[in-house]
Nucleic acid binder design. Structure first.
Length: 858
RNA sequence: GGGGAUGUGGUGGAAAUGGGAGACACGCUGGUCUUAGAAACCAGUGCCGUUGCGCGUGAGAGUUCAAAUCUCUCCAUCCCCACCA
């Protein structure tokens, strides 16, 4: 019954009003400061964090979704009485600022800060409840100086080193990339640009020192999605095995040439060994060749003296490169080149040929393998192709079992053809053989990780300067701590030629050596931006600290983060570096926690018409547009309503319009009755209610229970919004009764108040407006979250299903507390059932209390 | 090749534990109001030449009184890892 006098829901006006009020109250979203005496805070703490954005200048729908989830949770926790830390910041270094500088002739700093201002405006417009007093901007010196400080601490601890190495080079970025930033052989930012390998001197962080801990720690992260844990496990890639040294034996030809004084370089030393890594040392008696990676140093050495080999090896390297790019590495044909030389199996002194093979990788294990064709599919394929002997050394454990086909790739077996080790199980043989190797000095049990040290050098301008100086006399000299920060110079010329732009800034480069005072050269590489995001969430707890990255006592109060929310695309890079950084800080004595994040939630992508939003597809929906048309509340609420938060969400504008209509109904409903109940007293505890009042109270308390439960873990906010809609629908259906005063004012007031409270995490602007309209004083954020009264939520009569042979026939109403007998007789008394049974007696009657009766008839 | 997720009306989705499939919304149809439209409100909406004791949760089998849910085989889409020795 729409009444003409109902005011129109104008989200723009309401949201504008509250945005201003909130801006005037900076303490509203601030946590109680933990500064000196965190123990004195009585409320329990709750640290909820969304991943900080890169300041591109425009929020996208993925951000809106991410922040709507986090903000709903934060608001809920505030209302539950927690001391909530809910901060926001900017991951503000990085290449796009330099690209924009080139394109628009704007300095990166200016461009970045303008973008931050624009995005902050968008966030405020969305009504996101952040404490801006703790804002962190990573490109400002008071943040990045602590990157430098950490770098120096890590240098002291031996966790930073510099080495010449093959590195991934993106020609588009004109800089080095970490392994983690190479995707299918291409740059993570330029998906069609192939990454090249270059030999450069680079700075590395020794993350591999923590490989084991990072892996083992995953077992305890039970608040993380299993998917993310699996991805990290694969990335760290632990494998247990053994290293074995095979003596290298030159070919007869080479030996003769050496004797006649025509020694070739690289083949003249007496005892070269080839180290191989294997997970199956138990199969070593089946090794019939040794395979080297094409880029193995020994191969390089041999090839330098052998033109034919050099050409062929170059081809193998090329094949590997192509294989990596093709996407289906396993499908590339195995191919190899014999070197003509030999290796000696240390266990039986057998001489076996040394090959170079395109399926052996230099950057894993030892870059060389022992080839056991009988028990490895790749080795088998290779041996077949080149007629290399195949010797079975593992038989099925069951002596009566049929002879298995080769290759027999199994660790469930016993050794054969393995000298004195015959009959041992694989597991036992692995132990014994590794021990023998160790005792005799030609090998040992070892563990290999796929994880590599983190190369953080970038030959770019817009990043944290690495605080080191190159002195001709003293070598690498750290910048003394009291000279930090090493400031990034302004007014530099950005080009996209190789080498850091900083190298061309004379004022920056030319320094005196901190040790000897002579002229020296400053390091011009900057740090990977993933350094910035590895510890930013600690800075939020003490963002203004000018003497330390943060106060340990404060960090101890807030950490670990209770809930971290972001996209699954950060499952490896950011989330593994962060876990590493926390451990480093722990070992520096700065924090006590091993892990930064207790619970992690990865939200799904926002898609449109079944595809990821992208400019090239032309299916990008702008948050500003949505907010302008439907308001921030409707936009946010739709982002929560359209799909469960962990699944992909298909953006449909009609759906946003639907939410807007719903909010309009809520607005009219509450404003219609608010004046009548504003001054009503509290509900008398003893007054029994009935009719419409009871019906609505029941629905209300069921809704409270449902939403409260969801916030506690299931997070199906889409159904929470649906539940509020059901409540409102029911109230609207009772509109005539409400208008006629069928519900006592105190009860109606209570229902409306609670409805507004339930709405507060999802539509904060409207909730604040209606809260005030109800005559409530004080922020709704400080009002206690409603409590469900089980007695009121309980139905007194239930509809139960009556089935015959599992098929629904009818429903009957029974008292809510009906026992089995009552349910059975109610079912059997039903007209339809009696007709269907036609006098027959059910062979069996299944009763599910409160739910159904199933009559089994033969 | 290995691992994981997903598959339900015209659409987004609901159904914690095996117990009434399709909540809530979008869209659509009809209506009320209106000069008209918009808005708002009301009613309907899984499918069907068979309106049925009918069919129906990617396909097929199985377990069960009862399966979207559990088991097996297969198909499709997406994600992660991948000559990892």
């Amino acid at each position: 019954m729409a009444e003409e006098k109902d005011p129109r829901y104008e989200p723009a006006a309401i949201e504008e009003k509250w945005q201003q009020r909130w801006a005037a109250d900076p303490k509203l979203y601030a946590a109680e400061p933990a500064s000196s005496t965190p123990a004195a805070i009585l409320k329990p703490k709750y640290y909820v964090l969304e991943m900080l954005p890169y300041p591109s200048g425009q929020l996208h729908m993925g951000h809106v979704r991410n922040y709507s989830i986090g903000d709903a949770l934060a608001r809920h926790m505030w209302m539950r009485g927690y001391n909530v830390l809910h901060p926001m910041g900017w991951d503000a270094f990085g290449l796009p600022a330099e690209n924009a500088a080139l394109k628009n002739n704007t300095p990166p700093r200016e461009w970045t800060l303008a973008n931050i201002a624009a995005m902050k405006r968008q966030m405020l417009r969305l009504g996101l409840g952040y404490d801006w007093a703790t804002e962190v901007t990573t490109c400002l010196p008071d943040y990045y100086r602590w990157n430098q400080w950490f770098f120096l601490r890590m240098y002291e601890k031996g966790l930073v080193y510099r080495k010449q190495s093959k590195v991934n080079w993106c020609p588009e970025c004109a800089t080095v990339l970490a392994n983690e930033q190479v995707v299918d052989g291409c740059c993570w930012r330029h998906e069609s640009t192939r990454v090249e390998q270059r030999d450069l001197e680079q700075w590395f962080l020794r993350i591999t020192k923590y490989a084991k801990e990072l892996l083992d720690g995953l077992d305890h992260l039970d608040g993380w999605p299993e998917k993310v844990r699996t991805m990290q496990r694969n990335w760290i890639g632990r494998s247990e095995g053994a290293e074995i040294d095979f003596r290298f034996e030159r070919s007869i030809k080479d030996m003769l040439e050496e004797q006649s004084g025509e020694a070739k370089p690289g083949t003249s030393q007496a005892h070269i060994t080839i180290r191989v890594f294997t997970t199956r040392i138990d199969t070593i008696f089946g090794a019939t060749s040794v395979q080297l990676a094409p880029e193995h140093p020994l191969v390089t050495e041999l090839a330098s003296a052998d033109h034919g080999l050099r050409t062929q090896v170059a081809r193998l390297i090329d094949e590997q490169k192509k294989a990596r790019e093709s996407g289906d590495v396993g499908a590339i044909e195995k191919h190899g080149v014999p070197t003509g030389h030999f290796a000696v199996n240390p266990f039986n002194n057998e001489l076996m040929p040394v090959w170079v093979a395109n399926y052996v990788l230099m950057d894993y294990g030892a870059g060389a393998i022992m080839s056991v064709p009988a028990h490895d599919e790749r080795d088998y394929e290779f041996a077949k192709k080149y007629a290399i002997p195949i010797r079975r050394v593992i038989a099925p454990a069951d002596p009566n079992a049929e002879e298995t086909e080769l290759p027999f790739v199994s660790e469930e077996g016993v050794l054969v053809n393995s000298g004195t080790f015959d009959g041992l199980t694989c597991a036992e043989a692995q132990k014994q053989l590794a021990k023998i190797a160790e005792n005799n000095g030609f090998g040992k049990a070892t563990v290999t990780y796929r994880l590599k040290d983190w190369g953080i050098s970038r030959q770019r301008y817009w990043g944290t300067p690495i605080p080191m100086v190159h002195c001709e006399r003293d070598g690498l000299v750290p910048v003394p701590e009291d000279k930090l920060p090493v400031l990034l110079p302004d007014n530099i010329e950005i080009t996209q030629q190789g080498g850091s732009p900083l190298a061309r800034v004379a004022d920056f480069v030319n320094v005196t050596c901190p040790k000897c005072g002579r002229n020296a050269r400053r390091e011009t590489d900057t740090m990977d931006t993933f350094v910035d995001s590895s510890w930013y969430f600690y800075r939020y707890t003490d963002a203004k600290n000018s003497t330390a990255p943060f106060d340990s006592a404060i960090a101890k109060y807030w950490f670990p983060i209770d809930q971290y929310i972001g996209g699954v695309e950060h499952a490896i890079l950011h989330l593994i570096y962060s876990r590493f950084w926390t451990r480093v800080m722990r070992d520096l004595g700065l924090v006590e926690n091993d892990e930064p994040v207790r619970r992690l939630f990865t939200q799904g992508m926002v898609i449109k018409d079944g595809a990821k939003m992208s400019k090239s597809r032309g299916n990008v929906v702008s948050p500003d547009d949505m907010v302008a048309r439907y308001g921030a509340d409707a936009t946010r609420m739709y982002a929560l309503f359209a799909a469960p938060p962990d699944r992909d969400l298909d953006w449909q504008e009609d759906g946003v319009a639907g939410i807007s209509r719903f909010l309009g109904r809520v607005y009219r409903l509450v404003t219609r009755y608010a004046p009548a109940v504003r001054n009503a007293g509290p509900v008398a505890p003893s007054s029994p209610s009935n009719g419409t009042a009871l019906k609505l109270q029941r629905k209300l308390h069921q809704t409270i229970a449902k939403i409260t439960l969801d916030f506690e873990g299931r997070w199906h906010f889409n159904t929470c919004v649906a539940a509020v809609m059901e409540l409102v629908n029911e109230m609207q259906a009772a509109d005539a009764d409400l208008g006629a005063g069928a519900v006592p004012a105190p009860i109606l007031r209570d229902i409306l108040r609670n409805l507004v409270l339930l709405l507060a995490p999802f539509a904060p602007f409207l909730a604040a407006e209606l809260w005030e309209d109800m005559g409530e004083r004080g922020a709704i954020l400080r009002a206690p979250w409603p409590k469900s009264d089980p007695a009121l939520a309980k139905e007194d009569e239930l509809e139960i299903a009556v089935q015959i042979n599992g098929k629904l026939v009818t429903v009957v109403r029974v008292p809510a507390d009906a026992n089995r007998e009552q349910m059975e007789s109610a079912a059997l008394a039903d007209e339809k059932i009696r007709a269907r049974l036609d006098g027959k007696t059910p062979a069996k009657i299944i009763i599910v209390p409160g739910k159904l009766v199933n009559l089994v008839v033969k």
